[in-house]
Write a protein that binds this DNA or RNA. Sequence first.
DNA 1: AAGTACAAAATCGTATACGAAAAACTATCG
DNA 2: CGATAGTTTTTCGTATACGATTTTGTACTT
Lengths: 224, 224
Amino acid sequence: MTETAVAVGNTGSKSEQAYAAVKARIVDGTYSPGYRLVLATIAKDLGVSVVPVREAIRRLEAEGLVKFERNVGATVAGIDPTEYLYTMQTLSIVEGAATALSAPLIDSVTIARARAVNEDMRECLQHFDPVRFTHLNQDFHSILFEHCPNPHILDLVHRGWNRLASLRSSTFRFVPGRAHESVDEHEALLRLIEAGAGAEEIEKAARQHRSATLDAYLAQAKSI
Amino acid sequence: MTETAVAVGNTGSKSEQAYAAVKARIVDGTYSPGYRLVLATIAKDLGVSVVPVREAIRRLEAEGLVKFERNVGATVAGIDPTEYLYTMQTLSIVEGAATALSAPLIDSVTIARARAVNEDMRECLQHFDPVRFTHLNQDFHSILFEHCPNPHILDLVHRGWNRLASLRSSTFRFVPGRAHESVDEHEALLRLIEAGAGAEEIEKAARQHRSATLDAYLAQAKSI
DNA sequence: AAGTACAAAATCGTATACGAAAAACTATCG
DNA sequence: CGATAGTTTTTCGTATACGATTTTGTACTT
């Protein structure tokens, strides 16, 4: 327990540690977009050799969090507005599908949990904290997805979320007005599920819930 | 020619070579599902060290072509029927979306090219060759997707295809009856696009096109 | 004979080391 | 003063080496 390594977070493998460490630093903004990730530097920093760091970087590349160029190096992937658009659009599709697939399996207890989280969100609107709000938002959807029968689709949702995480703060920071609508749409979604609505209807609602956020962002971006 | 590794395909980096080589052997069946991928063996075989091979294997793991277990090793991922179901279901969703997004951008020349491929497929029905048929099928859809504005979604489609590629031959081998319907559905899809049908309608048609294949497979699998 | 403990082999994980490619810098020339 | 060629520096890519872990085989006990 005196082992510092354990404190950092020990999954056993150093690759894993390196992966978690670098990812955390990207997400929390220590490494901001464009930051150059030098293998040797990171390795020394983490007290491991370059090999596991290299593997970690390649994993992050596969997830789209870093951009990698042969014989040149890796940099933290920027949040190109275009990239944001693509990611959000893709998310709207896979989240919609995930929600529709999960809906028939959601029991009333789960609904109640999701509703409780949504109420937290509503309360959060008062003293608005974009980061906390975004976190709750993910919790809400995670509850709906937790019994999703298709793990691949669930994986795609998580990948999308990871990509967005490189935006240090949230979409809601840019489009605060959207937060309020979002909470209402969550409630509407819960009612649809409770009512046993058809898969198509639920999918459409869930998809529009996400793409409305995208549209709000685009409208705001254009107006600058 | 003394170097077999070079002949296989040289993109410069040895990781890349190893990746391509191992992937090719999985797809062509040299390494069949369950086959144990021993790093040192493959490395010696390709004339490189274990490091790039390791990286290649991890990439293949990320794509779902191999299963990797820490301190144990990698094996070629089996085509678990369940896994097949998940992959096809996911594909139906992302292909549907990709088709709908591409549709407005498809011009008459592209339509003509797609139709020509589909006619090849129709002709292929006579002296039926499942592998060739599957290949043409991918060509057909690739033509429809080639102007897809969202590269992420396109990437997801390709990932799905890769997964399915580990089934050495095609779905159509198991469900030959489906091939005929498939050609007809392709034509129907082309007509929808030509007619400038709405995104929803096109998405629905494209999705059902894929899931009908899945259903046919399931029905056949159950009847055994 | 079956089961357990121990030893040996196979294989992976990571560190270190060196060669190769790219980028940055500098000095020389037009 | 600007541009270009050559040199230096940085950083990556891969080979080799060794320690760690799991698996397999074997002998011993019950």
